[in-house]
Simulated scan of single mutants.
Amino acid sequence: MGEQRTNTKKTLLNLLIAVTILAAVIFLLLLLPAFVETTMPNDSYMIKITGLSDLAVNGTATVMIPVPANAEGELVIFESSSVLQPAGWRTAIRETPYGKMIAFTTTEDYAQDISRPTGEFETKEEPRLLVPALATPDNVSVAEFARSSGGTYTTVVFLDGFVSPPENATSISFDLEYRGGGGMKYLIEEDTWTATVNTAVSSTESGFVPVPAEYHVIPGGIHL
């Protein structure tokens, strides 16, 4: 009787071990594809500027907006790929007193709204935001601010060459959204950096106009 009970225990133990091994194998088979999966960090910049289509152009009109860059001012998209040309506009990277910016110029009689997504894979994982950065919270350096969890800072846009009498003034809306990083390797997801500008500027403005921007870091971690 005792021997039979011992054999039964051994059988149950062996069965439990077999089930455990089988469960472990199934778990590894399910986990392995995710473990070896690698996602390259991505840079995307959604550009949307509205309120331009009602404005007459005085010869040549120019709109300039901030550009994604790291804390040292190195561009993370537009120096390694061509700048996409929205309908009715010529686009280029232009040096300004505040640093590099994306410049849109047109010589048509009337301007058109600008809507253009851009993006590419990035090999680097480093904090980046929309620059120029004219002012940061507590006047910390741009590098220190970029390493923080985020906050509101000041960047700049530029308008010139539009005919907009004060009595017919309208608003030009800037909706800019940069998103970078977020790569994944061996189930470890990297940080994601976002910088946005959502503001309206009077069509009577001319020259550089400081505007608020939001910077936010989405922490990475283990991705299961």
Rank of each mutant, 00 (worst) to 15 (best):
E126W: 08
L129P: 00
L129D: 05
E144C: 06
T136A: 03
T136C: 02
F145N: 10
D138K: 09
L134N: 08
A135D: 12
T136V: 04
L134D: 11
L129Q: 07
V142E: 10
Y153M: 11
E126M: 11
E144F: 00
T136H: 09
N139G: 03
S141G: 14
T154Y: 00
A133T: 12
S148Y: 06
Y153P: 04
L130D: 08
K124N: 06
A135N: 11
K124L: 09
A146E: 08
P137G: 06
P137F: 00
L129H: 02
E144I: 04
L130A: 08
S148A: 11
G151K: 01
A133R: 03
T154M: 07
P127F: 13
G151E: 04
N139P: 01
V142N: 08
L129M: 14
R147Y: 03
P132I: 10
T136D: 09
V131R: 10
L129W: 01
N139S: 14
S141F: 00
Y153Q: 09
A135V: 12
G151R: 02
N139C: 03
T152A: 09
P132D: 09
G151A: 05
D138V: 01
A133Q: 01
L129K: 03
T152I: 15
V131K: 07
S141A: 12
E126L: 11
S149P: 00
V142L: 14
Y153E: 12
